[in-house]
């Protein structure tokens, strides 16, 4: 283990993080053709809290989710789940530990086997080996009650449910495994807004009750703000900013600023939308991001508009810890040579 990796691993154990990624890179394709779309991700989720992963399409959000649940093996770095390094496990050990982290996929129409009743799907999650049928029935009723569904629906098939109901079933199945961590990947983006609120509230109440650790992946900053204690912002496969979710109201990174300003704000009307239209970086290839700071072609404070900022093109900014002045001592980090807010730059712990 290299010294640069050792420190985060030790901190993961000491601080009781439920889930950590240490220098994780991941991508698709094997052998020479493989290309990472996720680069050098460091993040930790404190036990019992919700971390939001925010980013646009192509930012690597879903790749990160797939890597964290072990569906995609990282090409570098390690993933720590409680006391084990899950990215190093294989075979039966991996299968056993996999149950500790569960995924709720985005599309409620694809995540349930069309040929399985809800009972069988939940039963399988409770008991994948098929050993103890005794308590399972009671547990299934309890799970369905948890997600506000009538226990009688257990004998139905997925196609008999609406999108919101299916998503609740998917949540029940994830809970059935009694995991330590749940990864919710854009769980409400396929739902109508009135149904979305229902699912969000359900996840919040479950977390309040069970103190489960949650990783909440979304493209919608208002949803992230509603759900998360902490947020991490991804841009073209790299973390550009992370910290307490309050950072959304005083971001250090120009990209986070741009995301926040892009959210339609009825109170402010059109004047609230960020004024400048910059299309330069749109459509950038995640597997082949711009050199230096990947955001520099779109950055309103960057080298495109200011001559003194050549550094953004030549040197990739590191994700450095900073403190904001609101007094809570919240940690936050931004990867920007010229951060927006006037805050003290920290020198690490």
């Amino acid at each position: 283990m290299s010294p640069s990796e050792a420190a985060p691993v030790l901190r993961h154990q000491a601080d009781g993080f439920a889930l950590s990624a240490v220098g994780v890179s991941a991508g698709y394709g094997g052998g020479r053709r493989s290309r990472d779309v996720l680069h050098d991700i460091d993040l930790s989720v404190p036990a019992g809290q919700t971390l939001g992963i925010v980013g646009e399409s192509g930012s690597g959000k879903s790749t990160l989710a797939r890597a964290l649940v072990g569906q995609l093996r990282p090409s570098a770095g390690k993933i720590l789940l409680g006391d084990v390094e899950i990215s190093a496990l294989r075979g039966r050990r991996l299968r056993e530990n996999r149950r500790r982290i569960q995924l709720i996929p985005q599309d409620p129409y694809a995540s349930l086997d069309p040929r399985m009743t809800i009972r069988r799907a939940l039963y399988e999650a409770i008991d994948p080996q098929g050993r103890r049928p005794a308590q399972a029935a009671a547990r299934i009723s309890e799970l369905l009650a948890t997600v506000s569904l009538d226990p009688d629906v257990a004998s139905r098939y997925p196609h008999e449910f609406s999108g919101g109901q299916r998503q609740r079933i998917a949540i029940a199945r994830a809970l059935a495994v009694q995991p330590e961590v749940i990864i919710a990947d854009e769980v409400t983006s396929a739902l109508d807004s009135s149904v979305q609120a229902e699912v969000l509230n359900l996840l919040r109440s479950i977390q309040a009750r069970t103190a489960i650790t949650m990783l909440f992946i979304t493209h919608d900053l208002s949803v992230a703000n509603y759900m998360c204690d902490e947020v991490a912002v991804l841009y073209l496969g790299r973390l550009v900013e992370k910290g307490s979710s309050r950072l959304l109201f005083s971001p250090d990174h120009p990209y986070t600023r741009r995301l926040v300003d892009s959210i339609p704000n009825p109170r402010a009307g059109l004047s609230g939308l960020s004024a400048p239209e910059i299309t330069g970086g749109e459509g950038a290839d995640p597997a082949n991001p711009p050199a230096g700071c990947a955001f520099h072609p779109r950055c309103p404070n960057g080298p495109r508009l200011r001559d003194d900022r050549e550094r953004c093109i030549t040197e990739r900014p590191e994700l450095l810890p900073r403190w904001d002045d609101t007094g809570d001592g919240d940690h936050r980090s931004a990867a920007c040579h010229f951060p927006l807010s006037e805050v003290r730059a920290g020198l690490g712990d």
């Binding site: 649940v69 996999r98 149950r99 086997d113």
Partner: peptide, 26 residues
């Protein structure tokens, strides 16, 4: 590559069980 197979794997199903319960019936 369907989501329900991915999720079943995460639940801890052994590959053979996965094959017989999800892949072959479908």
């Amino acid at each position: 590559s369907k989501d329900y197979v991915v999720v079943a794997r995460l639940v801890g199903l052994r590959p053979t069980r996965l094959l017989f319960r999800h892949v072959i019936p479908n």
